[in-house]
Amino acid sequence: MKVSPIKPMVLAVALFLAWMATTGRLDLPFLLTGAVIVAIVVRITWATFFAGAHDFSLRGKPWPKPCIAALLAYPLFFFGELLYATWEVALIALRPYIELNPAIIRVDSRFHNSTALVLLANQITLTPGTLTIDADIPHQGLYIHALDLGKEGIDGVKKQIHKLEQQMEELIR
């Protein structure tokens, strides 16, 4: 199988940036050591972990155009959701009486790409009231544990997740 040389290069650059962040020194010997270690790590781990792991193929498709405004707005949205989730769970935990209506729901996603599906699952776990248990990747289904169903029931949770999906789709259009 012929591997395009771009993908290992992306991994190498990411690892090198991580090296620079962890050592925190920009002298020449440190950078050279980092380059050698990155080369060894990429050489060893590529065939085992990464070669077939990403189905994010760009061949024959136009490059996805990232929307700059959405990219800038997304971290704000993300941290807002995270803070809200933290606040809500903390309030529930400190209530004198805990009454919960947990449920496990299957939600069908529109994403065909498994990388995007995993990112969505992570995002769902960090939003208020929901936690991903399992992903059914061939059928694009996510099994979600909801902490408290509330008044709106299943439809409320589904609506919330479809909103998240839309938010993620706006990133790459």
């Binding site: 933290t86 769970v89 903390a90 776990t125 960090l126 208020p128 009231g129």
Partner: peptide
């Protein structure tokens, strides 16, 4: 366990 995971993951990530 599942509700405890909610507390452990979300609240603790924020904290």
């Amino acid at each position: 366990v599942y509700t405890r995971l909610h507390a452990s993951t979300k609240a603790l990530s924020g904290g």
